[in-house]
């Protein structure tokens, strides 16, 4: 049960820092988080030359180019860069939904690292699934992914609208 180690009122473990970094980024700020905010700064003092460039193709087909740090997940990047993909990452990377579903080119897909059973189970429930689909929350950046393209698939709502428009 080594989930938490506490010294006095200080919370040390990296895992906790991860929690608050994600939570602060993903949820509208609330007073309940204030006590922990201190940890969100300075956890990753990375030089910009160490960053990885990612090209997202949004649901309108537009390319959005951003940079992320190695070790960050693609969901982290979407949150940190404040990218507006409606409904993306609803469960905050806790493997309870498949809203951070992304589609990759085959050569990139092969380099994305291992897939867990839990991710595959969630991917099965993703809309518009392809053979090169992954969940953004489970893909971590490495330098070898420099310049990668990640396509945000159409959401259910979009499909309905486009049908509507074409009809």
């Amino acid at each position: 049960m080594a989930l938490v180690t506490v010294m006095g009122r200080l919370l040390a473990p990296v895992r906790l820092r991860e929690y608050c970094r994600r939570t602060v980024a993903a949820v509208a700020p609330g007073s309940w988080l204030t006590g922990l905010r201190g940890f969100t700064s300075g956890t990753r003092p990375l030089r910009s030359d160490n960053k990885v460039t990612i090209n997202f193709i949004n649901r309108d087909g537009e390319k959005v180019t951003v940079k992320g740090s190695p070790g960050d997940s693609l969901l982290d990047v979407v949150i940190n860069e404040d990218l507006d993909f409606d409904g993306f990452g609803a469960c905050e990377g806790t493997l309870a939904c498949s809203t951070c579903h992304l589609i990759f080119d085959e050569d990139v897909y092969k380099n994305l690292g291992p897939v867990t059973d839990e991710e595959l189970d969630m991917l099965d429930l993703a809309y518009g699934l392809s053979d090169t689909s992954r969940l953004g929350c489970q893909v971590c950046l490495t330098k070898s992914l420099e310049g990668m393209v990640a396509r945000v698939p159409e959401s259910v709502a979009d499909i309905r609208q486009s049908k509507d428009e074409s009809g």
């Binding site: 080594a2 989930l3 938490v4 906790l16």
Partner: peptide, 11 residues
């Protein structure tokens, strides 16, 4: 002044 270690509830 001891270090507190624990799990879910402690957190």
């Amino acid at each position: 002044g001891e270090e507190v270690k624990g799990g879910l509830l402690t957190h």
